[in-house]
Structures are given as structure tokens and as C-alpha cells.
Design a protein around this nucleic acid. Structure first.
Length: 222
DNA sequence: GCGTGATCATGA
DNA sequence: TCATGATCACGC
């Protein structure tokens, strides 16, 4: 068991010490079995880095380092530093949303401070040869927060007004809502068009690739 | 089923 | 080519 970092600085320095190492090296060092690919273990890289950095939250709906107020996100990038995938943030409540505000939302909480760990992860690179890049400690700037907030408020308003079935991944400039479930037969309670409860596919918030690409670029350094 | 970690895979 | 909708594994 790796000890929890006691400060933001300690966490960041620990993350910096991993830069340049391959996932194979890290997995071997920490005793993680290396799958042949991620088809059946999509969260493997994220869980390996959580372990290496001493994250503690498990599957609770809070930040990975609650004492530090920091969320950890690994993000797959290509050789030019561009993200290869959108970034999952958290699930969304679909009923009992009265009283929800941006500032008490889980999206706000998780994105208020994020330690990004980019991983050079082009699909042609074997999993064990993918390399950890320099970490980035980020908080949204005012423009980014406004974009996130307006997308979140638009989506939450639709949910509150019983419009969940009208929301697609095309809504939102930077934050989108997409299915988040074991499969498309999964069901959870939501507000229906006439205010009644209906059963629908669970959804989660994701950051668009264009948004994370821009934020990584802001921190790009030689 | 919920919530975590995400990436896969196919249609546009 | 790329984003949307679908999916995989795990703990509880």
C-alpha cells in the first residue's frame, strides 16, 4: 500500500517522478498484471496510476484525494499531445434535482482541481510500452468555468423539465451527457415529460476532446 | 443498480 | 476520420 500524499506539492512531485516511465515498468514495479489490451479492462491505466499515487477514494462519488481537494485523471494522448478520447467526469442524477446548483454539483467539485496525467497511448503502441508524460495540475480559468457551468445548467434544466430523452451527446459546447452503464438495457429513475418518474438509461458527464486538448495545450512546455 | 476507472466500435 | 452511443471490470 502506497501512503497518501500529504500535500498538493508532494502529490505533484510524485506524479512528476513517474513521467517518462512506461506502463509496463510501473506495472512490474507495483505487481500489476498487464492485460494484452484494454478491451476488457478499460480502466486499467487509471487504476494503475491511482495506486502509484496513493489515491484513496475508491468508487465513492468524490475526488480521488479528498483531503487535498484534487481529482486524478489519466488522459490518453497522441505524439502531438492531443487527447485521443473524451474524459468521463461523473454520473448525473436524473431525479430529485430540485436544489441542484453548479456550486454544489459533483461536476464542479471534481473539476475544481484536477491532476492530469497524460499517457502516450496511440492504439498501435502496445499497452506495456505506453509512456507516462508530464503531469498537469489544473483548475478551470474563468472562461473555462463559465463554459462548463452554462453547459451543466442547460443540461440540468432539461433533466429537471423531464426532457432527458431529448438530450444527446450533441448538447453542450464543452461538457456533454452520454450513456454510462453496463449496457443499453440498464435502467434508472428519471423525471418524465409530465413530471412522473420514468425508467431510462443512466447517463454521465464527459468533457469534449476539444476542451481537454485546449487545456493541455495551455500547459504545453518544451 | 450505482459509481468508480475508462475505451471500444460503428455509423455518419 | 472521428464523435456518439455502447460497453467492460470491479466493489458493494
Amino acid at each position: 500500500m502506497i501512503a497518501k500524499p500529504q500535500s498538493e506539492t508532494e502529490l505533484f512531485e510524485r506524479a512528476q517522478s513517474l513521467a517518462g516511465l512506461s506502463l509496463g515498468e510501473l506495472a512490474h514495479r507495483e505487481g500489476f498484471a498487464i492485460p494484452k489490451d484494454l478491451k476488457r479492462e478499460k480502466g486499467w491505466s487509471g487504476q494503475l496510476l491511482e495506486w502509484c499515487l496513493g489515491a484513496s477514494a475508491g468508487s465513492k462519488p468524490i475526488q480521488d484525494f479528498p483531503e487535498l481537494g484534487i481529482e486524478l485523471k489519466t488522459i490518453p494522448i497522441d505524439a502531438s499531445g492531443k487527447p485521443l478520447e473524451s474524459t468521463y467526469v461523473c454520473i448525473t442524477p436524473l431525479c430529485n434535482v430540485t436544489g441542484s446548483t453548479w456550486h454544489n454539483s459533483n461536476v464542479y467539485n471534481k473539476l475544481s482541481r484536477v491532476l492530469w496525467i497524460p499517457i502516450l497511448a496511440e492504439r498501435h503502441i502496445p499497452l506495456d510500452q505506453r509512456v507516462v508524460a508530464n503531469p498537469i495540475l489544473w483548475s478551470p480559468n474563468p472562461q473555462q468555468e463559465q463554459l462548463l457551468r452554462s453547459d451543466w445548467e442547460e443540461i440540468m434544466e432539461m433533466i429537471a423539465f423531464g426532457q432527458i430523452e431529448q438530450i444527446t451527446a450533441r448538447h453542450g459546447q464543452v461538457l456533454q451527457l452520454r450513456p454510462k452503464a453496463a449496457n443499453n438495457k440498464a435502467r434508472t429513475s428519471a423525471i418524465g415529460p409530465n413530471g412522473q418518474l420514468i425508467q431510462t438509461l443512466p447517463r454521465g458527464y464527459y468533457l469534449r476532446t476539444k476542451f481537454t486538448a485546449a487545456l493541455l495545450q495551455d500547459y504545453f512546455q518544451l
